[in-house]
Design a protein around this nucleic acid. Sequence first.
RNA 1: GGGGGCGUAGCUCAGCUGGUUAGAGCACUCGACUGUCACUCGAGAGGUCGCGGGUUCGAGCCCCGUCGCUCCCGCCA
Length: 611
Amino acid sequence: MSSSPEQSFLATSLRSDTCGLLRRTDVGRTVRLGGWVHRSRDLGGLVFIDLRDRTGLVQLAFGPAWTAADVQSAAAAVGVESVVLVEGEVVARESDRVNPEMPTGEVEVRVTSLKVVGPAVTPALPVARGRGDKMPAEELRLRHRYLDLRRPELQANLVLRHRLMQVTRRFLSDRGYLELETPILTKPTPEGARDYLVPSRVHPGEFYALPQSPQIYKQLFMCCGYDRYFQIARCFRDEDLRADRQPEFTQIDIEASFIEREDILSLAEGLIGALWREAGHEAPAHFDRMSYADAMEFYGCDRPDMRYDLRLRDFSSVFAPLDFAVTSNALASGARVRGLVVPGGAAWSRKQVDELEALAKGAGAGGLLRLRRADGAYDGPVAKFLTDDARDAFGLADGDLALFVAAPDRISSPALDRVRQECARRLELVDDAAQRFLLVMDFPMFEEDPTTGALAAVHHPFTAPHPEDMKAFPDTPARWRALAYDVVLNGTELGGGSIRTSDPAVQSRMFALLGIGDEAEQERRFGFLLEGLRAGAPPHGGIAFGFDRIAMLLSGAPSLRDVIAFPKTTAARSLFEGAPVAVPADDLAELHIAVREASRSRSANSPEGTA
RNA sequence: GGGGGCGUAGCUCAGCUGGUUAGAGCACUCGACUGUCACUCGAGAGGUCGCGGGUUCGAGCCCCGUCGCUCCCGCCA
């Protein structure tokens, strides 16, 4: 007998039901349950235990009227987090004994037999937490992950993660995408992030690399005619961490053949919609779009948060006629004066505006110019140079504050981006409930090093340039746009991709522009992909989503570490199993590796784990 | 690589301007309790104040170094 479809899946030889799904409809049934002692209350004559399993909690009741004395004393003695098997009758609680805060609160199980099958030592961290209890330090949660993972909140996150994976698989499989695997032991890629290296025992002095992404392989699948590929792929990057960045992370990796940009974008919209619906959220059928150029121009950022407007403006023409050295010099050197008008910002104190300037300076700006209009008067360093025309052109309402950066765009954009975000936060313009999706289109193909002028690929070297741009500006590749796109939500990048170069001639040109024109060098780095492309490549392209980040957003978790079962710390350490560890000299010798004594980490305080 | 924050009992924290024997709540142990649901009540046990060095008559507190966690910049798509 089962009370729900899930219940029937979870019944086993040892249990008839699970804890969290028992309801009034189960009253009268004799059930066998297994679970962890979440909490217990010993009233002397009566004992209550809240029993927990993946599905939730149910109250077990032990009393002399239905429980044998030895069973009751065993119940009183069992410690929290011990695993027990019980048998008893599901009973309706009297109305004044109902617990409305528990889904199972209308019933309890009157236990007749109890077996402690997994006695637990006193837990190092509390699993059951009272209202208002603070969370244990993250360090301890990670060190005792076997306890932290028992917490219903974390279990809910991982369950959601599972469901999102299944939705992804179904969505893509239903559309003809094949889930194909690619190697974990692969070849170092010179592009992008640092690789994790794995020494080869068989080949002295040679190394595998863990993949930063399956990029090259998925393109090869296209060359091989698999037409549509996806993978929920583990990727590795040996870079410093953030709250939303782990050294080992999961991507939804997608590639398709005989497609153009729109095909991938509508697939992406559909997949995001399916994921959002699975988590009980809404996502629009089509996302707003913005060019990279506009994003940088109006928001100073390639992933603008569209929950608020507060756009940047170009004030160069307003400043041009003014006899103001700071801005005239900037304008004379070819830079612009950009800024934003903050409604109501005139009310901010000198100190508050100084804080904004500190943000701008932190992003590389020399300073932040201010112009305030309060009580009909203008003040700030710009004020005394104002002409009537300029005054009108700024368009400040009374109470407004205008902030400017006079610098090249590559400096003013990030500076004003930070200022804009902080202003929005202060003005409480950010609607936390809002979800504003955005497709950022037409990224530039190359990034120019400001000092050397060398070109670097913004996306990666296999991204296809806009054909029209190649035609229109054949000799100024810095102006080429790429057929690349990002999916952005509320200022966070969810994923990105591009149409790839399938024409070997274009690919060679790209390499030449990137300074790897030497064919031997190309072969050394990307030979196996180039071979594949030359052997007949269909037009293809794809996209990849940061799966952990999506799971984090949809679960409302504050950190990636709360949607990954066994995450690393910001020092890329695993406190639970204690990785990484020093390795005995013999093991290193077998790998043909010697570690310089000076570079041995002397972490006296490193986790005393299982090394 | 750089900057900020944190580190005191198993957990969360307090600890005054450097001064007697380092405290509280929860958890734990023992005892009492027949309707609790963060049960309640009584008693008890529990400390290398992250680690090392220094200043001082005296350091949880000040200084230097170091380890760990965390947030951010650089880095990373």
